[in-house]
Computed example of a mutant assay.
Amino acid sequence: MSSPIPKFSDLPLDKNGPHHNAWGLYGKDDQLGTLNRLTDDIVKAAASEIQTGTRINLDWPLDAQADVPFFGRQAFEKNVYQKPPRIVNDDVWTFNTQSSSQWDGLRHFGYQKEAKFYNGVTLDEIHGRNGVEKTNRNGIGAWAEQGIVGRGILLDYHAWRIKNNIPHDAFETASISAETLQKVAADQGTEIHFGDILLLRSGYLDAYNKLSRADVEAMRQKQPLTFTGVEQSEETMEFLWSNFSACGADHPSWEAWPTRKEWSLHEVMLAGWGMPIGELFDLEGLARQCREVGRWSFFVCSKPVYVPGGVASPPNILAIF
């Protein structure tokens, strides 16, 4: 049986485009990218992961970072007000979609040197400037039509590295390699299926929850901010490209930050392949459930908010066992 996707060595598909791109694989107007891998058959097969009906929330609260979010982003604000004379309340929320759990959409991060987003979309198309008509192409709303739904796997790197006495600092630049991720999967006895939704527990939230406000405020002043994340390498890209429909983690950068290469995984995954990147997912309860049942695979249901032309979205995500 032939592979449903080109080999990693076949990239870039558009030879006139940036490195490692898969532009045109699903047509020049495609806005789903690797979510095209979540076919009806793959989602139907993933439903077999539901055995008990136990549901685990993976969203961090929208106000979890309070008034001190990293990267200088706006804090979540909630205004609850009564509509007198009735005993009725409404509320208004104001927030940056990047300040808590989020899916990075295809308008978030482009190829930096080429200034192009997935399938060649430009900044002028997104912002409607320099005589170019503004469009909603690559908006997060396109993902809301069918959601991000399928078989999820948790690679609990945090538990694995503690078990193996491997030092770790969530707030310093360091890399987690593809080889390490495969070792974690083998140690857990977790099989990887094509089209899986990968969730990586790096240990960031465990570390963040132990910080004082003074610690957080001090870290926010660092320039640049530094975080441990997935390694920027050919091996990592091949591992991700060959297996997954979407990738998420518990830390704010997905990859080692700042990048240790002249390019970043955000460029290749978002702008090159159209692969969703999830950040700041709360995977602590999920890790406990996986350990309890001895299974690190489950059904995932995520419904991005339907905002045409949006850049990112809260994931609204559940793992179901």
Rank of each mutant, 00 (worst) to 15 (best):
S202F: 12
G105P: 01
E284K: 04
D41V: 10
A256L: 10
M1R: 08
M269N: 09
K78V: 00
G274I: 11
L13N: 13
V184H: 06
N89A: 02
K83A: 00
T226E: 14
T52A: 13
S233I: 09
I148F: 10
Q289A: 09
G294M: 05
L283W: 03
K15Y: 09
S264G: 13
Y208P: 03
P167G: 13
A256W: 12
E114I: 05
V121T: 11
E262S: 12
H251A: 12
T259S: 15
L58C: 09
I42R: 15
K261Q: 14
A186N: 15
K15Q: 14
M219P: 03
A185T: 09
R86Q: 04
A142K: 07
M1G: 15
T34N: 09
E49A: 09
K7S: 05
G189C: 12
T54E: 14
Q146K: 07
K28L: 11
E235V: 01
V92E: 14
G131H: 15
G195S: 05
A46D: 07
N89G: 02
F239A: 02
V68G: 04
E217I: 09
G152R: 02
W273Y: 14
E262Y: 14
I197Q: 05
Q82R: 06
W296T: 02
F76M: 02
H193P: 04
P308L: 01
N138K: 00
R55C: 10
R295P: 08
E255I: 02
I192L: 09
S202N: 10
S48K: 15
A186K: 11
W23F: 04
L25Y: 01
N36R: 12
Q221A: 05
G285W: 01
E172Q: 15
L280E: 01
A256P: 13
W93Y: 12
T34Q: 10
A75C: 04
F8E: 11
N138A: 02
I317R: 00
V132M: 03
C247S: 13
L62E: 05
A75F: 05
S245C: 10
P84M: 04
P61T: 00
E255D: 12
I126P: 08
E191T: 11
K78W: 01
R151Y: 13
E267C: 11
V300M: 12
E145D: 05
V149A: 03
T173I: 12
R201N: 07
D14W: 10
G310C: 00
W257P: 04
G150I: 00
G131L: 07
D41A: 10
W103P: 00
I50M: 13
P69C: 08
A249P: 06
P12W: 04
T180I: 15
D196S: 01
